[in-house]
């Protein structure tokens, strides 16, 4: 690990100020950052510890939603009664990720900003545009089993590794950030970026901006939801494909539907226009199949990950069926 300086920010203002120096980064749970520093992938010269600032609670919003402070841990979020009852999809998604120990350390804000687990991003002896812009992508023609099939570019086929974010995308959360220019909110779908020719940028966040909270709208789809995660072992593995599915039903008729995919792109993958077409239709496997097909239209495999195109479609159908058939326990 390269040497770095360290400071503890007392409040958001100080955090924003202190992170504005060259090479500075925030550290909260550190579950991803420290690993990356040890293997020399990330080389911050200064760490601003934000664990002492506010934003460590979960509160009701005026609009009937929930505001998750950025520094609430993933574990506290998943087990919060309001989240469990009103946003069980989010709770399930969080608990499908990592391990109990990691979830106890990792924060909600940090979860949004974790880096890809691409093999080559982690190996400083191989080219990687995300790690070292312009060096090339080793994954496109290399080993790419875990990597993206949607929204890829010539320079990067990395995936975003989070489970939590897949649920947040489906729930249409909003990210609250504060920077030198003040506060602003970012709709979740616009928070993460596609790689394009700037794969080193994961999110639409300015270097001086800090995530302060994640806002959940009032609608939580607590009746019909499913988080289906497919991976190479039953726990402690990143998704090959994951699906956050949520339905609002009137009998068998779809009133509202949300589907977000994880493990397939540089960001949680949503296709609201395809979802919209399903409103008013019957919630049947055939309907779900149509949606699945629409979601994967334009998907491209890179060899080892070709299977994800078929798998993702099957997973969407299965997750929607699970969501539909879910027996909610009162």
């Amino acid at each position: 690990m390269r040497p770095f300086t360290y400071s503890q920010a007392a409040d958001v203002e100080a955090a924003v100020r202190e992170v504005s120096t060259d090479g500075a980064r925030f550290i909260a749970g550190g579950t991803n950052l420290l690993d990356l520093m040890k293997i020399d992938v990330l080389r911050p010269s200064h760490l601003v510890d934000i664990t002492q600032i506010a934003h460590r609670s979960i509160d009701q919003t005026g609009e009937g939603g929930l505001l998750l402070g950025a520094l609430v841990t993933n574990a506290d979020t998943a087990y919060h009664p309001q989240v469990e009852q009103r946003y069980p999809l989010l709770s399930h998604a969080i608990l499908a990720g990592a391990t109990a120990q990691l979830r106890n350390m990792a924060t909600d804000g940090g979860n949004l900003l974790q880096r890809t687990r691409c093999y080559y991003f982690y190996d400083t002896h191989t080219p990687c545009n995300k790690r070292e812009p312009g060096s090339g992508c080793s994954a496109i023609k290399g080993y790419n089993r875990d990597l993206a099939i949607l929204g890829t570019s010539e320079s990067c086929i990395a995936t975003h590794p989070s489970d939590m974010c897949v649920a947040l995308a489906a729930l249409e959360a909003t990210v609250h950030v504060t920077g030198k220019a003040g506060e602003r909110t970012i709709p979740f779908q616009d928070f993460h970026r596609l790689p394009g020719d700037t794969p080193h940028l994961d999110a639409n966040l300015q270097p001086d901006e800090i995530i302060t909270a994640i806002e959940l709208p009032s609608k939580g789809f607590s009746q019909h939801y499913a988080y289906l995660k497919l991976r190479d072992r039953a726990s402690y593995a990143f998704a090959l494909v994951s699906v956050a599915a949520a339905l609002e039903l009137d009998g068998d008729t779809i009133k509202d539907i949300r589907v977000a995919l994880g493990g397939v792109a540089h960001k949680p993958w949503r296709l609201p226009e395809a979802e919209a077409l399903l409103k008013g239709q019957e919630a049947t496997p055939a309907t779900f199949q149509k949606l699945a097909k629409a979601y994967l239209q334009g998907a491209r495999g890179y060899g080892h990950n070709d299977f994800k195109i078929e798998l993702a479609q099957r997973a969407i159908v299965r997750a929607l069926l699970q969501a539909k058939e879910r027996k909610t326990t009162a």
Partner: peptide, 22 residues
């Protein structure tokens, strides 16, 4: 990865062994 001659699954995130849930 025979282009670089290296085992690319060189940590316990990428090299899977069974976990309790398996």
């Amino acid at each position: 990865d025979s282009r670089v001659g290296r085992f690319m699954t060189h940590d316990l995130d990428k090299y899977h062994v069974p976990v309790n849930a398996d």
